[in-house]
Structures are given as structure tokens and as C-alpha cells.
């Protein structure tokens, strides 16, 4: 063995020694579980039986999941949560960032105040909002009362059931006969799509928008500050008004990061668990708030402890997230850049 090879070997060993502490943990608790989990989802293990009784059952757990109306409902609940909370959060965050992206008094204060909800923990926030949305003495119903009686002059205050209302928001706003529950349901749970998220889920969506807006606002603000000032100066010399400036400078330059944030926050929102678990512990009225992860927890770690079934649900979630990640990589191929 030559001296050069020996040195190379020593360098390699040294590098692997640096990697070892993190590597061992990552292999045991991250890499192997990913494989074990996949294997388990093709089996029939519960925590109540010994591991030796493992039998290969193929895709049965997956088929069972999709045939189970409870699972399909959680899938729709999660999808509803994602498609309502994510765009609302991003639009509000971008608006706040645009308002704050200028020299003005109290800028730092507003930024701090808007960001404050994000650093607080979901568990405590969920408890506070459970109180705000309480049907008898929550501030939500108080506000509706002021709005309807004191402001609009109604005789009776509007009161909502908030967290215990199973009807979809569109179902509540538009007239009921369209959503006649005695008619056989549409296939694939399309009823849920048309009726929208239940008001109880929508209350949770509002809570999550309240919490996350500040976080995305900070990222948008950073993005806005990266835009070259001279572009705006040039545009205003050319006589572009603020709306035109937004359309042809801000929006195109901000769209890569917006797409990135959209996908990232969708991935995060698909993994939602704590707000639903804390605000509607039983899965909400008619199970209308229960998200995927809560279903996974209930099936896998309570009751019958169906670990294999839970593993298959975890993999369905992984597939969704993988799909979104691939979409993100595809979209990131094209970036809009100005100058040079």
C-alpha cells in the first residue's frame, strides 16, 4: 500500500468518524424506519400480537383504507384543510408584506405583532381558540351578536355552532335543498367537495391562518427586499403606476418564492395534526375535522393498535408529499430573472 493510499484511507476514516454520531441516529431512527414501515404496510401487524406472527398480505391494507369511508373522509378533510388554509395564508401574508415593505413608523412593531402567533405553541393556541369559538360564551358569537343586532339591527343575534357544526360552509351559505342528505351521496365523497369544509373545520382553518400568516409574511418581506430598488425607480420614471409596477416587477420576481412557499406549506398542511386533535378531540362533528395523521394515530396507537394499517396510511401520506415535492422540483426548473 502506497503512502498516498494510506493517507486517503485515513482521511476517509476520519470523515466517517465525523459522520458517525449523526449517521447512527439517522440510520436507526430515520432510514431503517422508512424501509421497515413500507414492509409493515404490506403485513398485518398489530401491537397486541407478537412480531413473529407477521404475514405478508400484499396491498390489502391499502385497499382496505380506500374502501373505508372513514379514511376517505379524513382524506377529504385534510385536502379541504390544505386548499383553504394555504392560499388564504399566503395571500394575507403577501398583502401584509406589501403593506410593510416601506419606510414607515411602527414597521418593526407591526412585524413583531404579526409574527407573534407563529412562535407560540399550537397546543396552547388551540385551547385559546376553543374558548373563542365556544358556542355559548365564545368571542366569535359575541362578535356576530354585535354585528347582527347592534350594527345591522336584526331582532335576534346570529349564532353559530362553530366547532360543533358538521355542515359545510357552502352548504350553510347557499340554500340547503341542493345538499339534501337523503339523496344517495355522490361517488368518491364529492359531496364533501361541493359542501366545502364543515364550519368546524373552517374554524380550525381560520385559526391556522391566524397563526401562520406572520411566518410567511417574514419570508415575503425578505423576498421583497431582495428586489433591486432601481427597477422601481426606472419604472416610475417610465410613468408606471403602483399597480403596473406590482404586475410587472414585484409579482414576476416574487413568483418563484411564492411557488416554493405554496408547495412547502401544502406539504406542511397535509401533515396537520395538533389543531384538530386539540380543538375537536373526537374528530369533530360527524368526523368532519379529523385529518389523516389523527386517523393514523387513532388507528395505530389506540383501540386495536393496527400498526400495519397505520403504516399504510403513513405511506399514502408519503406518496402525496412525494408528489408535491416532485412538482416543486419540476416548477423550479424555470425561474424568472431580470437584468444581466
Amino acid at each position: 500500500m502506497s503512502a498516498a493510499t494510506r493517507r486517503k484511507l485515513r482521511d476517509n476514516l476520519e470523515a466517517y468518524a465525523y459522520l458517525a454520531p449523526a449517521g447512527i441516529i439517522l440510520i436507526i431512527f430515520w432510514l431503517l424506519p422508512v424501509i421497515v414501515s413500507l414492509a409493515m404496510s404490506f403485513g398485518n401487524i398489530t401491537a397486541l400480537q407478537p412480531l413473529e406472527e407477521f404475514r405478508f398480505v400484499g396491498l390489502r391494507q391499502y385497499i382496505e383504507a380506500f374502501q373505508n369511508p372513514a379514511f376517505v373522509q379524513t382524506l377529504w378533510n385534510t385536502t379541504n384543510y390544505v386548499i383553504y388554509s394555504v392560499p388564504a395564508t399566503l395571500v394575507l401574508a403577501l398583502s401584509a408584506a406589501l403593506l410593510l415593505n416601506r419606510q414607515m413608523a411602527g414597521r418593526g412593531l407591526f412585524r413583531t405583532v404579526y409574527f407573534l402567533p407563529y412562535i407560540t405553541t399550537w397546543v396552547a393556541i388551540a385551547i385559546v381558540f376553543r374558548y373563542l369559538f365556544h358556542r355559548e360564551y365564545g368571542l366569535g358569537n359575541w362578535f356576530l351578536g354585535v354585528l347582527s343586532v347592534d350594527l345591522l339591527g336584526f331582532e335576534n343575534p346570529i349564532r353559530l355552532e362553530w366547532l360543533s357544526e358538521p355542515r359545510g360552509i357552502w352548504e350553510m351559505i347557499f340554500f340547503e335543498p341542493v345538499f339534501d342528505r337523503s339523496v344517495p351521496p355522490m361517488p368518491l365523497g364529492l359531496d364533501n367537495v361541493v359542501a366545502g369544509p364543515s364550519l368546524s373545520l373552517f374554524s380550525i382553518i381560520m385559526t391556522s391562518v391566524w397563526r401562520d400568516t406572520g411566518y410567511f409574511m417574514i419570508i415575503f418581506l425578505a423576498g421583497l427586499q431582495n428586489i433591486d430598488r432601481t427597477l422601481y425607480e426606472a419604472a416610475s420614471i417610465d410613468g408606471a403606476n403602483p399597480v403596473q409596477q406590482f404586475k410587472s416587477i414585484t409579482f414576476p420576481l416574487l413568483s418563484p418564492i411564492s411557488f416554493f412557499l405554496l408547495i412547502i406549506s401544502m406539504i406542511g398542511a397535509f401533515k396537520v395534526f395538533v389543531p384538530q386533535f386539540m380543538m375537536t378531540p373526537g374528530g369533530g362533528p360527524d368526523g368532519s375535522t379529523r385529518p389523516l395523521v389523527m386517523y393514523l394515530y387513532e388507528e395505530g396507537f389506540t383501540g386495536e393498535w393496527k400498526l400495519s394499517y397505520a403504516a399504510s396510511i403513513a405511506y399514502i401520506l408519503t406518496m402525496i408529499i412525494l408528489g408535491l415535492t416532485l412538482l416543486q422540483n419540476r416548477l423550479f426548473g424555470r425561474k424568472i430573472e431580470y437584468g444581466n
Binding site: 430515520w30 432510514l31 422508512v34 421497515v36 396507537f301 400498526l307 397505520a310 403513513a314 401520506l317
Partner: peptide, 21 residues
């Protein structure tokens, strides 16, 4: 790249095997 790839896997997948471990 292997390490980057594990970032894509949602933590929920790890719950069950880690619980067993």
C-alpha cells in the same frame, strides 16, 4: 443526496417503526 432525500419523508412514517424499536 440520501440525507436530502430523507427530508422529504414525513415524520409520521417513522412513528410506527420507531415505536416498535
Amino acid at each position: 443526496y440520501l440525507i436530502l432525500a430523507t427530508m422529504m419523508v414525513p415524520g409520521q412514517v417513522l412513528l410506527i417503526p420507531n415505536f416498535l424499536v
